[in-house]
Amino acid sequence: MTVTWEESGWEQVAPGVGRRRLPVWDCTVGLVVGAGGVLLVDAGSGLGEGARLRAQAQALTGRRVTHLALTHPHFDHILGAAAFAGAEVFAAVGVETALTARGREALRADAVRWGLDARVAEEAVDALPVPRHAVSGEWTLDLGLDGGRPVLLANVGPGHTAHDLAVLVPGDPGVVFCGDLVEESGEPQAGPDAVPDRWPAALDRLLALGGEDARYVPGHGAVVDAAFVRAQRDALAARFGVSE
């Protein structure tokens, strides 16, 4: 038996499109439902959280998750990925190189530094699949039948990381899943893997994809509009000394 968005604790952002804010790190995951497939955007911070998301998605849709898009390779967004066995996994080109032995160790250490249990982190990192599909420009998925539910995956980075992927769901309204290129619940975080001088341009590409009327779903925080994204773009440009 399927449940409604409200019963499940998910927020419906547009018809067939929802998102959920996860506990602890306030990471947002997205769900896009079509007649021919189900896409999850990001996978949570560990195998247990990933398994809960998988069960929730199945309860909402009556079907398994068929596609998984990872917006960037930070632990709170990708360490649940192995819970989605059989799903086609997409990420920006270059994420596969970030998952070498050295990259996995850095990912594990970062997760533990932020408070994830060391055993949970090690288990999830060991099981983490390498994305099968590397998006270098734009990639259109059809989650419907005969083109009835197109979803655009766009490599809009670098910015927050060297490998930032956005997900555009056309519609009325359109929805853009931004990953951590946009944050609403706090100031955008620029860690050692950020590319600050390219970040404002990545937000320009987000705005070009979604347009003025889209709903923008940040990696952390409440859903925002184009004006919020533009203001954050300008603040980042000033913060990092990027010329217009």
Rank of each mutant, 00 (worst) to 15 (best):
M1V: 06
T2C: 02
T2E: 09
E6V: 13
E6W: 04
E7C: 03
E11S: 11
E11H: 07
Q12C: 03
V13G: 00
A14D: 09
G16K: 00
G16C: 07
G18V: 04
R20H: 05
R21Y: 06
R21I: 06
P23N: 06
D26E: 15
C27Y: 00
T28Y: 00
G36T: 09
G37R: 05
G37D: 01
G37I: 01
V41P: 00
D42G: 03
E49G: 13
R52S: 06
A55L: 11
Q58E: 14
L70H: 08
H72E: 13
P73H: 06
H74T: 03
F75N: 00
D76E: 14
L79E: 05
G80S: 02
A81R: 02
A82T: 03
A83M: 04
A91F: 00
E96A: 14
T97R: 15
T97M: 02
A98Y: 05
R102Q: 09
R102W: 08
G103C: 04
E105D: 08
E105Y: 10
R108G: 05
V120E: 15
A121M: 04
L128R: 02
P129D: 08
P129C: 08
V130R: 06
V135E: 05
V135D: 00
G137W: 12
G137T: 15
D142N: 12
D142Y: 14
L143M: 05
G147D: 06
L152M: 07
A154M: 13
V156L: 10
G157N: 11
D164M: 00
A166V: 08
P170H: 13
P173W: 08
P173M: 07
G174D: 09
L181V: 10
L181P: 00
E183C: 14
E184H: 14
S185A: 15
G186K: 13
G186S: 11
E187C: 12
Q189D: 12
A194Q: 05
R198W: 11
A202S: 12
A202Y: 04
L209K: 09
L209D: 09
L209E: 11
G211H: 09
V224D: 01
D225C: 08
Q232Y: 11
R233E: 06
D234Y: 10
D234E: 15
R239H: 15
R239G: 07
F240K: 12
V242A: 13
